[in-house]
Design a protein around this nucleic acid. Structure first.
Lengths: 337, 337
DNA sequence: CTGAAAGCGCTTACAG
DNA sequence: CTGAAAGCGCTTACAG
């Protein structure tokens, strides 16, 4: 019972282990009768396929590393990363692969240490989930192994990446505010923090430009320091009638702050977020926001990494996955009111 | 550059691969000078250790499967499972192991299909995270591989498990309510749904008994059907002055329902939850609750599974990890008011 | 201190 | 349709 191998099965029937291998893998060269007999016996003997031996032969582990920087794994953004990882696990399954999560500690990222998964040849490729430092990205580039960035990208576009369409998402959302009669619109977020936030800001800006508006410095409100830590909002005396926040969590905090200062939301100030995570519906009023298509993003990223692991040299570049606006009560219709 | 092996290193220096193996593993029988030379060369040649080959030899994969039933992976309980999985990944790391997450679909659980990880010998043991059906538990018992249950347990106590101390957590919490002057206390939860909820209920009941109170049927309010789906609360006309809810999410919904019915929380009715998850702080008023010690639980579970994988035959039984009461505004002090 | 031999469990040509 | 031989990259006795 201990450890059944193909050889054990072979000896019991009186054939060679080659024949057993062929039968169990449904390959040609074994009569159907014998195949059935072998399969039956394998079942009876409690045989389990030894993937490690196969890996040894062809050099593939059938594992993909999913690297998540530590700082995204705590806090509140959890939900996004868990859903993403989970969806990845599901899609890997379809391809006969497994994902191995590797939390990249801040210290390792700082010290430019590649994941242990790499040094131990435990995986055939990597999905990096969540913005990494520029230096670390350079390090990754030199790593000779298939890789895909998920939810962020390399500015030099040398590594395939799948991102949410932050630019057009924020652009659409800002247009939506203009359509509702808003004329002055601000933005909440640190423009230098991540490429996602920057792109959302630029989409917002594009909409402003198209509506003949200029940027108003006072209405670009910072939400976090350079290490990503949230800071107090610095509110000017005069506010625009609407704000585009870089994410729902910040929109949630921003709404609370506005209410604390005596503003009514959305009557005095409308607020929109991004992500459609739990903060969108625990905010009062519920937030109009953009729902990121996690499933589609993850499926795409997995599809790409599997193709690359299987040998495609093709470069997929930067894939943007469209989100969709979810309309809720946090936007005031100025055309009627 | 393609694929550097120990043999390549050996040939370059003019020694055997046995010597390289010894040097790279810091084993005896190689002079320090040669060791250094070999390590240096390995580095220069970009050598990466082939874990698969090692696995082939000793039959260990250095992976542990973490199985999470699909129904816990969606919804709102996410946060708990993600934090748990993440913490597990961190602790595995310390032991030189990796975790591989396997979402167990409802269909596979129903059909009594073991995880693919098992049939492919991809792991040395399993942590099962989250309540499984009785039939599935029986199936697991027959699987000859080390395993630990996390956050639930087998009623026959045949499989090691690590759980939060639901019984004493709810007991302490109910005592706390009595101490605040409450005399009539109800419970919200389905008594037949999971062992966690049942234990919380029993802890609550124990406190009642100790305070000379009997159960009042009307004040045991159901929150979900047998498949775990939430149902409308069936509120009686007369309510007790306090309720112990089986979890924060349900407490959140229950508070909203009470407010909807015109009750003031906590003035008219106090409410306490369990878990200290996000629902505890998005509820108005914030919930008094029990914080589960995820880190400790996970660390313990990982420690146990590693020991078993390494050959310990010892049985650890059922380990309860104590949580702690987090006091917030949802409990009215009846002694002063 | 160093190495030749055997083996972990499978698969891939190749030969019959 | 079936199988002997070689090999994937390492490690474990064992011999020198």
């Amino acid at each position: 019972m201990a450890n059944v191998t193909m050889k054990d099965i072979a000896e019991k029937i009186g054939v060679s282990s080659v024949t057993v291998s062929k039968a169990l893998n449904d390959k040609e060269g074994v009569s159907d009768a014998l195949k059935d007999k072998i399969k039956q016996l394998a079942d009876d003997m409690g045989y389990r396929y030894n993937t490690t031996a196969k890996s040894m032969k062809n050099g593939l582990t059938y594992n993909i590393g999913v690297v998540i920087p530590e700082r995204f794994s705590g806090g509140m953004s959890q939900s996004f990363y868990f859903r993403a990882y989970q969806q990845a696990a599901r899609v890997f399954e379809k391809y006969g692969y497994y994902g191995i999560m590797n939390i990249l500690t801040d210290a390792d990222e700082e010290a430019l240490k590649l994941p242990r998964l790499y040094y131990e040849k435990k995986v055939d490729g990597f999905i990096f989930l969540g913005q990494l430092s520029a230096d670390y990205i350079n390090l990754i580039k030199e790593m000779d192994m298939p890789k895909v960035f998920l939810d962020f990208y390399d500015e030099h576009d040398e590594i395939d990446s799948v991102i949410t369409d932050n630019f057009f998402g924020a652009y659409d959302l800002t247009n939506y505010l203009f359509n509702k009669g808003h004329k002055d619109i601000g933005f909440v977020g640190n423009l230098h923090s991540t490429s996602s936030i920057q792109d959302r800001y630029l989409g917002f800006y594009k909409s402003l430009l198209e509506h003949g508006k200029d940027l108003t410095k006072d209405w670009i409100i910072n939400d976090r320091d350079e290490r990503g830590k949230y800071v107090e909002f610095d509110l000017p005396d005069a506010l625009p009638s609407a704000f585009v926040c870089n994410c729902d969590q910040v929109a949630h905090a921003f709404v609370n702050r506005l209410k604390q200062e005596g503003y009514k939301v959305p009557e005095d100030v409308s607020v929109v977020g991004f992500d459609n995570d739990i903060y969108a519906t625990i905010t009062d009023p519920n937030l109009t926001t953009v729902e990121v298509d996690i499933h589609e993003m993850v499926s795409e990223a997995v599809k790409i990494i599997i193709k690359k692991v299987q040998g495609t040299k093709k470069c997929y570049g930067r894939q943007s996955i469209k989100g969709k606006i979810v309309k809720r009560a946090s936007v005031w219709d100025k055309r009627q009111g």
